[in-house]
Amino acid sequence: MSADDQPGLYVESTIIMTTVRVVSPFVLTFALFVMFHGADSPGGGFQGGVIAGATVMMLAFAYGIETTREWVDVRVIAALASGGVLTFAAIGLGAIALGGNFLQYNEYLFIYEEASKYGIELVELGIGAIVASVAIGLFLLAAGYGHVVDGEGGEA
């Protein structure tokens, strides 16, 4: 192909990048805060997970999708999702093992007086991990539509 002049080079905006860079640690902190405080405020694992996912999307919009795809390892996403499921299942089934119902937190009270609260937090964290990884995964998948997926990310 003999087109010498490439279409105008697109450069990411410094302003957007810097703003996102400054804001992102606080947004992620807020996401985790929401995850940990599901019991006594509006929020919880689902909302926190979505905000955490939004942090990654924000980076992707500022820095470019491909750059972010390289940064976010597919295996990390897969590990997050499966780790979340495992936490959820372990806490839930643990209660059954102790003679209660699925996710019956007060079965754990013999360990420590506030154990049921920690149980809830752990489950929220698990849900948050699942939601965040699914949100990021879906986003990268949708953004990569039409691109050749290289490597063996298929099993994720």
């Binding site: 105008g8 957007i16 400054v22």
Partner: peptide, 20 residues
């Protein structure tokens, strides 16, 4: 603070896209 920081950036992003 969040609004103060992000609002002008958002306006810039849209104006930049329009210029582009």
């Amino acid at each position: 603070l969040f609004m103060f920081l992000t609002n002008p950036t958002a306006a810039h992003a849209i104006a930049r896209a329009a210029e582009d």
